[in-house]
Amino acid sequence: MNTQQVAERLAALCREGKYEQAQKELYADDAVSIEMNDMKSGALGNVSGLAAIREKGRTWKENIVAIHGGSVGDPIVAGDWFSLAMSIDATYKDMGRVDMQEICVYRVRDGKIVLEQFFYNT
C-alpha cells in the first residue's frame, strides 16, 4: 500500500473503533509512538515496537468507562507522511470525563506505519 492507501485504511478502521486491527494490519514491527512532552511516562507515554504500542492501546482502552462521542477527519497526505484530526469525548477511570481533540501525524515506510505522534492540549 502507498501512503494514501494506508492513511485511508487507518481512518476507516479508527472510525469503526477497530484500533487493534489497525495496529495489527498497518503498523511495522519497529514502529514508534510519541505523546506530548507533558504526558506522564509509563504505559501511556512514548513507546517503541508494535508489541508496546498494542499494550499502550489496551491500557488506554481498559481505562475507558464510557465513550460519549468522537470523530476522525479525512487524511492529509504529503509524501511518506499523513495526518488525521481526531477527537474523543470519553469518561476515564482515572481522569473523569475528557473531551479531547488532537492532530495525529504518521510516517509510512514500505507500506507500514513506522511512526505515530500525537499533538493535543495537556
Rank of each mutant, 00 (worst) to 15 (best):
101 Q>W: 14
19 Y>D: 03
69 G>P: 09
88 I>D: 00
77 V>I: 08
22 A>F: 11
25 E>H: 06
101 Q>P: 01
109 R>W: 00
30 D>W: 04
31 A>H: 02
74 D>Y: 04
81 W>V: 02
56 K>C: 00
120 Y>E: 05
61 K>T: 09
39 M>I: 05
65 V>R: 14
60 W>A: 09
80 D>F: 00
65 V>F: 10
95 M>E: 11
44 L>Y: 10
59 T>L: 02
103 I>E: 06
67 I>Q: 10
30 D>N: 15
14 C>G: 00
80 D>E: 10
109 R>M: 06
23 Q>K: 03
81 W>D: 03
67 I>D: 00
4 Q>P: 03
22 A>I: 12
36 M>W: 00
103 I>T: 14
5 Q>G: 13
93 K>N: 13
74 D>M: 13
60 W>N: 04
46 N>K: 14
50 L>H: 08
54 R>C: 01
64 I>Y: 07
92 Y>Q: 09
15 R>G: 05
55 E>M: 11
72 V>F: 04
37 N>G: 01
9 R>Y: 02
105 V>L: 15
36 M>I: 14
84 L>P: 07
18 K>W: 01
60 W>Q: 04
30 D>T: 12
109 R>I: 05
66 A>L: 08
46 N>R: 13
111 G>D: 10
47 V>M: 06
110 D>L: 08
107 R>D: 01
64 I>V: 15
74 D>P: 06
23 Q>V: 11
53 I>D: 01
102 E>F: 11
76 I>H: 07
75 P>A: 07
84 L>W: 09
9 R>P: 03
9 R>T: 13
120 Y>G: 09
8 E>S: 15
37 N>T: 07
111 G>P: 12
48 S>R: 15
38 D>V: 02
56 K>Y: 01
75 P>G: 07
94 D>I: 07
66 A>K: 15
58 R>N: 05
79 G>P: 09
49 G>A: 05
41 S>R: 11
97 R>M: 12
71 S>I: 00
68 H>E: 05
5 Q>E: 15
74 D>F: 04
108 V>Q: 13
111 G>L: 13
107 R>K: 15
